[in-house]
Amino acid sequence: MPEGNDNLNSRVLEAATTGTELRLADATDFAWDEAGFVTEGTRAKDIEAAFGEAVTRENRYTASPVLFIFLKDGKVAKAARIIPDAFFGEDAKKKYGRDVVLTPLEGHKGIPQLARIMLARDHSVAGPGRSTAARGTPCSRFPHRQPRPRPRQQ
């Protein structure tokens, strides 16, 4: 079910590279009312528990660094592979509304590998240069990404 989405992928990469905010709804051209993401290595049963449907046949999702899952009326409308590895695992497996804004961390402009973009519900309350994570905490409290589990090699 996961598929590529060139527009979303390029818009996320551009936002990470330039250090700019991206309203997720502006980067999509299909109907959805909630979205979330998982990172590479997430167990399939955890994805299903978070979003209500299985989106991979594998035991773990490994097709790309990030998989965005878009829901419409509570059902998976689209699962899009994203190449930029620019998200915090701590914000994964959660649902966000159409007002979600992807907000880069301060000081990481031009370095896509370090431009960790946070999903924010209301970025305006944090003031310039800072964002508010889903739970209302400043993004700057996360100085690094949590390690992701790596698939075992056989």
Rank of each mutant, 00 (worst) to 15 (best):
H123I: 04
F68H: 01
F30G: 03
S64A: 08
R98W: 00
L119S: 07
P2W: 00
R135C: 13
K93S: 10
M1R: 12
R145L: 14
D122C: 04
A35D: 11
K94G: 02
K93Q: 12
R81Q: 14
T42L: 03
H123M: 01
A134P: 08
A126K: 00
A86Q: 13
A115C: 06
S64E: 10
F70T: 06
N59R: 15
W32V: 04
T62Y: 10
E106H: 05
L114T: 07
D29N: 06
A92G: 08
H108I: 15
A126S: 11
V125F: 01
E48H: 03
T62E: 13
S140V: 15
V66K: 05
R152N: 05
R98S: 04
A86T: 09
P143Q: 14
W32Y: 07
M1K: 14
V38I: 15
I82G: 02
M118Y: 07
I117T: 11
D46G: 03
F51Y: 06
D99H: 00
V66Q: 02
C139W: 12
F87E: 03
A86D: 10
R148S: 09
Q154H: 06
P2A: 08
R98P: 04
F70R: 00
T56G: 09
F30N: 10
Q146P: 08
Q154E: 04
P147K: 06
V55C: 01
A31D: 14
P143E: 13
A50D: 01
D91C: 07
F142S: 13
K45L: 11
I117D: 00
H144F: 15
S124K: 03
E34M: 10
S124V: 08
A120P: 01
R152K: 12
L105A: 01
E58V: 14
W32P: 00
L105G: 00
D33E: 06
I111V: 14
P151V: 10
A50F: 08
F142Q: 13
I111R: 15
P151G: 04
A50G: 02
N5F: 04
G36N: 11
A49P: 05
T132S: 04
A25P: 04
E21H: 11
R60L: 12
